[in-house]
């Protein structure tokens, strides 16, 4: 039976919805991306979909379920649609390692990189101690990944293949270069060779490439005032 398209809600910028899009592209699941402006995200009818008023959220007509929070959405998609185990392992130990890295991404990488972006790019005045705090945290988070990847024989976080636990990091990895641009002394990817190889390798995957191009297009449209 053919799958019906899953509706994915996105903001006009920002990496989190594209974590979800990468998984949909990798699994070849049909979807319909709906980009909402920030005002629309904070009011009905969207807040009936996600009471938090943030993106992403999905509505899946195949199961009748609505899911929000990018980490919960990705776990849902893997559970429901990765029956061939293209992007995951279902052995018990690997399963928990995957969950662990998902939580590390959503609670460690995402929120802190996001704050670095705010203080380095958007805030109206320079607050050096706040910039330092979050640029240091980017380095710490990447350092942890680099240390683990350097020890991994396969170069992946879990097992011998690229899983959703790796892919979930891609959109925020991509943010480091633009976020650190105002403080180049605070970021040098060459300090983290295992991380660099891993992060750059994932960008070669067709699904990742396609998603990042789509994200770039949406952000360009947003700057042109489309949303």
């Amino acid at each position: 039976m053919a799958l019906q398209k899953i509706t994915v809600y996105s903001a006009p910028g920002g990496p989190n919805p594209f974590k979800v899009v990468i998984i949909l592209e990798e699994l070849g699941i049909p979807y319909d991306l709906k980009v909402l402006g920030y005002a629309a995200l904070k009011q009905k009818p969207y807040t009936d979909v996600n009471p938090n008023g943030r993106a992403p959220a999905i509505v899946d007509p195949n199961t009748g379920l609505t899911v929000w929070e990018s980490g919960a959405i990705i776990e849902y998609l893997i559970d429901q649609y990765d029956k061939e185990k293209k992007l995951h392992y279902d052995g018990f130990a690997e399963k928990w390692q995957q969950h662990q890295w998902v939580f590390y991404q959503v609670s460690g990488q995402g929120p802190y990189f996001g704050q670095a972006a705010w203080f380095n790019l958007f805030h109206h005045e320079k607050l050096p101690s706040a910039v330092d705090r979050y640029m240091d945290e980017i380095n710490r988070v990447v350092g942890v990944l680099d240390g683990v990847l350097a020890k991994s024989k396969s170069g992946w976080l879990v097992g011998d293949k690229c899983t959703y636990a790796d892919l979930i990091f891609v959109p925020w990895n991509e943010m480091i270069a633009p976020v650190s641009a105002p403080t180049p002394e605070k970021w040098d990817i060459n300090k983290y060779p295992a991380y660099k190889k891993w992060a750059e390798g994932m960008k070669e995957r067709p699904a990742v490439k396609k998603t990042l191009e789509l994200q770039g297009q949406i952000m360009a449209d947003a700057q042109a005032g489309k949303y």
Binding site: A72, Y76, V106, S107
Partner: peptide, 15 residues
């Protein structure tokens, strides 16, 4: 899945 929404809301948001 609803439980998971709120679990992630805590870990990625409130915390």
């Amino acid at each position: 899945y609803e439980m998971n929404n709120w679990l992630f809301f805590q870990n990625a948001g409130v915390g």
